[in-house]
């Protein structure tokens, strides 16, 4: 085993002043540049300003509608089955329309449990649920308000906002109720 002595710092190094000054110069340069050109500042004044999120952003869930405005969901429970966090709770009801037969009476997503895995979107056979509402502030003052209900998931998003990022997908050729003549 060979013992190596720690090298002794030189005088200039042990003073630190030069390095501190170098670092402060960089900061000072940014300060001056931001003061002269405030438009190019790389700061977003959240929440007054919101950054535009890129199109493939996985946001919070929304429920899709049929043309007549009713939910596309048929309460098949595949999303609730595949959900690893068990955050989707559906209560199926019987529709008076025999072409639809089954519809969700309640559709609750517990956002506190959701892990944003997106499995529910993959599992849905009718493209009834998407995760594309570009919201990053899923926050509230009570737990109950963070369980999103059917009406909220169906309506509470800006349609234009969603449309800009998600041009309508080609209609998936569905079997079953939607394929009926």
């Amino acid at each position: 085993m060979r013992v190596v002595q720690r090298p002794k710092p030189k005088l200039m190094q042990s003073l630190y002043f030069i390095d501190i000054f170098k670092g402060l110069m960089l900061t000072l340069r940014h300060v001056i540049r931001n003061i002269l050109n405030p438009d190019q500042m790389m700061v977003v004044y959240f929440p007054e300003q919101k950054k535009e999120l890129p199109p493939p952003t996985r946001g919070r869930h929304r429920l899709m509608k049929r043309e007549d405005g009713s939910p596309r969901c048929t309460a098949c429970m595949l999303c609730a089955t595949v959900c690893p966090a068990e955050c989707i709770h559906i209560l199926a009801g019987e529709s008076t329309d025999t072409a639809i037969e089954k519809y969700p009476e309640r559709f609750d997503i517990d956002m506190l449990r959701c892990v944003y895995c997106g499995f529910c979107v993959e599992a849905c056979p009718l493209d009834a649920i998407r995760m594309d509402v570009p919201e990053v502030t899923v926050a509230n003052y009570s737990r109950e308000k963070l369980v999103y209900h059917k009406e909220f998931l169906l309506n509470h998003h800006n349609e234009d906002y969603v449309k800009n990022y998600n041009p309508p997908r080609p209609v998936i050729e569905t079997h079953g109720p939607l394929a009926r003549p």
Binding site: T74, A75, C76, L78, E101, K102, L126, H175, G176
Partner: peptide
Amino acid sequence: HPLDCPICDKA
């Protein structure tokens, strides 16, 4: 046979 397994109770 209709492929309405998502709304069929037997599925």
